[in-house]
């Protein structure tokens, strides 16, 4: 009896999931989405390519040991180039305080490629990769760096145009110093925003 109930529950579950995340496509080439994101930013890590005796004796520093949880906000624009693929741009602002109470900020401007495998008009689930540049600053120090991001988003659309969702991912800003005196400081800083999103689509 118990076994039969488990089988019945599994069948119902599969049917439900299949109906929610139907493989039918909702978007068409030319559709557009604008998404606003805001939420906490969790520092992930800082990785130096080399170690030094004076400034960093380790390659890897866990993010929360050197930075506090901060915040992230961004705006995304996506343009569908096929039913499941879109190209877009993300402009954001991230901040985290370090242990000396100085604020580290990162302003990324990135081109986005987004793949939306699950879309039924009500639910969207997408995966994005971004490449671009970011402006890093701390105290009176500034550095323009490369930037890349990998993130996932799930959204629920409560009407034809508007949806809310949750996004998270890993954002990477390789700090490459081209001045010879600073090449020992080259490394990657990574943070993981966890944001609520508000999406408008047409």
């Amino acid at each position: 009896m118990k076994r039969k109930l488990i089988i019945l529950f599994a069948v119902i579950s599969l049917f439900t999931i299949n109906s929610v995340f139907a493989t039918d496509t909702f978007y068409q080439k030319g559709d557009q989405k604008v998404t606003f994101n805001v939420g906490p930013s969790i520092p992930a890590f800082i990785y130096f390519f080399t170690t030094t005796d004076s400034t960093h004796t380790e390659n890897f520093y866990p993010g929360l040991e050197v930075l506090d949880v901060g915040g992230y906000g961004s705006i995304n624009f996506d343009f569908f180039i096929s039913e499941k693929e879109s190209l877009g741009i993300e402009v954001g602002y991230d901040f985290n305080y370090d242990k000396g109470d100085e604020i580290y900020s990162n302003v990324p401007i990135a081109a986005l490629y987004t793949y939306t495998p699950i879309q039924n008009g009500i639910w969207d689930f997408s995966l994005s990769a971004g490449l671009g540049i970011s402006f890093n600053s701390r105290d009176d120090q500034t550095l323009l760096s490369l930037f890349s991001s990998f993130k996932a988003n799930g959204s629920y659309f409560f009407n034809e145009n508007w949806g809310i969702g949750l996004s998270s991912g890993l954002y990477l800003a390789p700090n490459i110093n081209y001045l010879s005196d600073l090449t020992d400081d080259n490394g990657i800083i990574a943070y993981a925003p966890v944001t609520l999103s508000l999406t408008f689509r047409n």
Binding site: T55, H56, K99, Q141, L143, L182
Partner: peptide
Amino acid sequence: TDATNGILSEIVNS
């Protein structure tokens, strides 16, 4: 050429 300092080093040493 605006890379004036090693920001990451400053963060881990703060």
